[in-house]
Design a protein around this nucleic acid. Structure first.
Lengths: 233, 233
DNA sequence: ACCTATGTGTCTGATAGCGAACATAAAAAT
DNA sequence: ATTTTTATGTTCGCTATCAGACACATAGGT
């Protein structure tokens, strides 16, 4: 298992010496779980390159209900869509789901870098490309699959992005992520625990059996995992 | 009401004389409803600039169920995500929902144009940007809103993209689009008809009262409509 | 006029999830 | 040690949707 290395795949894919010149302009920062990396409907202040930890992009409705539309780890840059062009406001906000170590930079400055450097732009475009395809799959998954399948998918993806089987998340937060009620998550998690695929206690979830948990997840887990492969290869 | 003009907003936003040189390399074509513009998991043969009509991008699961993840009219280029870079296979296929008049071009040729021309690339990036934001909203909508709200949203969006109140679609196809069962669509459509917001008969749906239909739709209609505004402005 | 495809209405029973309430338990704060 | 906050377990009735079946209506082809 072990923690992922503190690398960001996009930054590491940049050619030298350009990579070093970028790093020198980045601010290394550690933020606690719950930190909002950027807000919905606002121009983002910073762009973030995650080194370790995960963050969720979430869309909230006016009645307060919400659903996760993307889970981000140490690949890519956030918010990558907003770098592409035009007005930079979107319906999603981004929240750290655990302690995150990241490099950050003023968003307008990174927009200028996107215009200036073809090497950097190409990597951002690859990131946006993959992420759009992943989002496509998740959009359909949100409609077609039930809470237990989506919970299993989410746990496996979170494991892949963090390298740990131990996730610190309450069922209430998982309900926001999955776009379901807390009681629905409790039932789904209880069903997975009864089958000994996971265990949990008060905000700590542990994956016990990856192979069988994959069987409980919808096909979207595998589809998305394939899209994550060779992100910049 | 009346039909939309036979223009593609992206093409029309190109500066002259470059625009004319692009047009000269495009093939003008009319395709019937049901035509697949590109398949899932395959490298697309053509890129399409729609002039009139609408097409749906759909994701299908292995059990045969499917959901629409995007509705495309005379803005933009399809498949815009695949132009961004890297491997060009995605989980979505694209189907014409009515007769489409479009300009098409070999996909690899348009990829080269994307690399070559900054003016063209900028417009594609704006398209991909807006579309990613719209897709984000739809991904959450698919999870959080019921069939009747989503049906109302879809009908209004289809109207906005085609300029007509008369849509030729069976409830069976609407079920595929909305990711629901045909009987669920029948119930939702029946409820809207009882309130005199729409009328329909055998594959023909008509919007009767836009204002009140908007009231029956979820907030996602307005959110997405705002994102469509000033696409290239 | 007939047949056939397809679209629609409408039943069933079954299930997933909602929405709200309440009890318990564990951690955190004082 | 006590209080407060938060997380989880569990109940209830209710609704939306599923899954399957069948009847009927309509449009198109012959």
């Amino acid at each position: 298992m072990g923690q992922r290395p503190l690398d960001n795949l996009l930054l590491e894919a940049l050619p030298q010496p350009y990579r070093s010149s970028i790093y020198s302009r980045l601010e290394e920062i550690v933020v606690p779980p719950g930190t909002v990396l950027y807000e919905a409907d606002q121009i983002p202040r910073y762009a973030w390159f995650i080194g370790s930890g995960i963050a969720s992009t979430m869309v909230s409705m006016s009645d307060g209900r919400s659903a996760e539309i993307g889970l981000w780890g140490s690949d890519g840059v956030l918010p990558c869509y907003h770098l592409l062009g035009g007005m930079a406001r979107g319906p999603a906000r981004c929240v750290a789901q655990m302690e995150i170590k990241a490099w950050r930079i003023s968003f307008p400055e990174l927009q200028r870098e996107f215009q200036r450097s073809e090497a950097f732009r190409d990597l951002v475009l690859r990131c946006a490309h993959r992420r759009s395809l992943i989002l496509s799959q998740i959009a359909a998954c949100n409609r077609l699959h039930d809470a237990e399948q989506r919970l299993a998918r989410w746990l496996l993806t979170a494991h892949d992005l963090t390298g740990t089987n131990q996730l610190s998340l309450s069922q209430g937060f998982l309900a926001d992520i999955l776009g379901s009620r807390r009681t629905t998550v409790t039932l789904a998690a209880g069903a997975l625990r009864r089958r000994k695929l996971i265990s949990y206690r008060r905000g700590q979830i542990q994956i016990l059996d990856h192979a069988r948990l994959k069987g409980a997840a919808c096909e979207c887990y595998g589809t998305v995992r394939n899209l994550f492969q060779n992100f910049y290869g």
